[in-house]
Write a protein that binds this DNA or RNA. Structure first.
Lengths: 224, 224
DNA sequence: ACCTGAACACCGTTCAAGT
DNA sequence: ACCTGAACACCGTTCAAGT
């Protein structure tokens, strides 16, 4: 915004702005991952002290939220053709794919609901798709809530960062399940451990869409 | 006044065991919250150094997982009467309620899937309920996965720890939504911001159950 | 008003050295 | 084998003092 020109040869230290801070944070995110996006590291990148950032950002959670909204601006908006269900599924798959690049952010989003411009635009699109599908108006708001929660949680599950240890432990526990004490687990062991992520994701979204269109709210029940 | 230097009269420092460590961790959790359950704090409680804990616990994530499994042992098993859907809903509501006491643990569970005894028992019960409901066998495993993810994520959302800041921000953003640029949000503002947690939770579970019973897997599709 | 260095109060994890 | 102190490499946030 402020066109400050330096008379020096060395790259001038740009004035701090909230946008500049967020931009630098996104850059660190892309190059080094969310774990490195700390107040101190960010300040270092901006050639200042961590304390200075607090003029523009309340805390780390707010910083993460700002980064996330920036990322949400990059979700490809799916083509307009096809069934509303397919478009809904594609939009949410795109959302999930974006979050999957930085699962740690998905975790943040789960805890601190975003409220940025791009998040609102996403909600707007989701609500419009449910409206197009003739989902009862009262169900739309709660519907996008579940859909977004599912998509966000699915991405957040991958925040374990290159450590398949826990997955190994679960796989072992399932495979070693005693057939007499855990007959169901033994019987379903294969299904519990397999399934391509995209297929599971797709099925999950269709489960939700089907459920939303077929399940009345408590209020609707009372009226019935 | 000063106690004898004998080690016998003072409460003897108990030998370290994995169980003892987990028990102490649970005690700190109950008294001071998950944030205080750190390796250092835990070691202090056990009158040793943090390094000693690493003989019994691989890292903090594994410690959290062990604590969670301990907690899962306290979920009340719902009464045997009623429709399988109601029993399923009650069981998952109990699971969520337990996690809601320590939402930070729910967050851990989302990232590092638990694999303890009590978790397996819960899965076993969930699978049995879906079987009782004549849910197609191939769908049961993926079904409990979605159900648990939903319940876990719902609890995890409350891990913001007494800071309704982000919620305020979202509420403001929704209420201030421009009617021309965000017509859907403006129209659904009330529903987006309201709803008792229990009602939302209950509706969410029924959405999932309905969806699971009505949505074929990709494989089932191919066969059809 | 904005910016800063320094300080406060912590972290997880590793490792060489002890027992 | 188990246990330990000390060290390494960090954190978020606040605050008094400067500009």
């Amino acid at each position: 915004m402020a066109p400050e020109k330096s008379r020096r040869e060395r790259p001038a230290k740009p004035a701090l702005t909230r946008d500049g801070i967020v931009a630098a944070a996104v850059a660190i995110l892309r190059e080094e991952g969310l774990r490195k996006v700390t107040m101190r590291r960010l300040a270092q990148e901006l050639d200042t002290g961590a304390a200075s950032l607090y003029v523009y950002v309340r805390n780390t959670a707010e910083l993460h939220a700002a980064i996330l909204d920036e990322l949400l601006g990059t979700i490809p908006s799916p083509p307009d053709d096809g069934d509303w269900r397919d478009r809904l599924e594609r939009l949410l798959t795109g959302y999930t794919a974006t979050l999957l690049e930085y699962p740690g952010l998905a975790l943040s989003a789960l805890v601190a609901r975003p409220s940025g411009e791009n998040y609102l635009a996403l909600c707007e699109n989701l609500l419009a798709l449910l409206a197009e599908g003739d989902v009862a108006p009262e169900r739309r708001a709660w519907g996008i809530d579940i859909l977004l929660q599912h998509a966000t949680a699915t991405a957040a599950e991958h925040a374990d960062e290159e450590s398949p240890e826990e997955w190994d432990a679960l796989a072992r526990a399932v495979r070693d399940a005693d057939e007499t004490t855990h007959p169901q687990i033994a019987a379903h062991a294969a299904d519990l451990l397999t399934g391509a992520p995209e297929q599971r994701m797709s099925w999950g979204l269709r489960v939700l869409i089907t459920g939303i269109t077929h399940t009345g709210l408590p209020a609707e029940r009372n009226q019935a």
